[in-house]
């Protein structure tokens, strides 16, 4: 009755390994960026770059390893809702505390 996991258009083991290599490379870039910033201050550019890299890894794991891009949209709606809601609510809290600031 239950559909076999991994039967429709799911990546092959080889593709999974390639994805892992990509994740590894991204992690190496992250750590490298950290040390570059330690050695020579990047003038605040390290933060957006590191966040973009982390998001990239996040999306890859969710989309391929968790198969979300092959699943019914109900699941991704829930997942995105939780993620976005958390992002907005806690951003407002941090704004209220002045930890993050709009503008300037």
């Amino acid at each position: 009755m239950a559909t076999h996991p991994g039967e429709h258009h799911h990546p092959t083991p080889l593709q999974y390994v390639k994805i892992a290599i990509l994740l590894a490379v991204l992690t190496i870039i992250e750590v490298a960026l950290f040390y570059v910033n330690e050695a020579a201050d990047m003038g605040g550019w390290d933060a957006p770059l590191l966040i973009i890299l982390a998001l990239f890894k996040f999306v890859i794991v969710v989309g391929w390893y968790m198969h979300l891009r092959f699943e019914d949209s109900t699941l991704s709606k829930f997942f995105t809702a939780g993620f976005i809601l958390a992002l907005i609510l806690y951003a407002i809290v941090l704004l209220a505390f002045g930890v993050i600031a709009l503008g300037s």
Binding site: Y16, A20, L23, V61
Partner: peptide, 25 residues
Amino acid sequence: PFTSFSSFALLMSSLTMVLAHNALA
């Protein structure tokens, strides 16, 4: 460096996890 190493172990465990799933399929 140490945390990067253990983070890497956790990241790669996602690969082995998905391979387990694939093997079962």
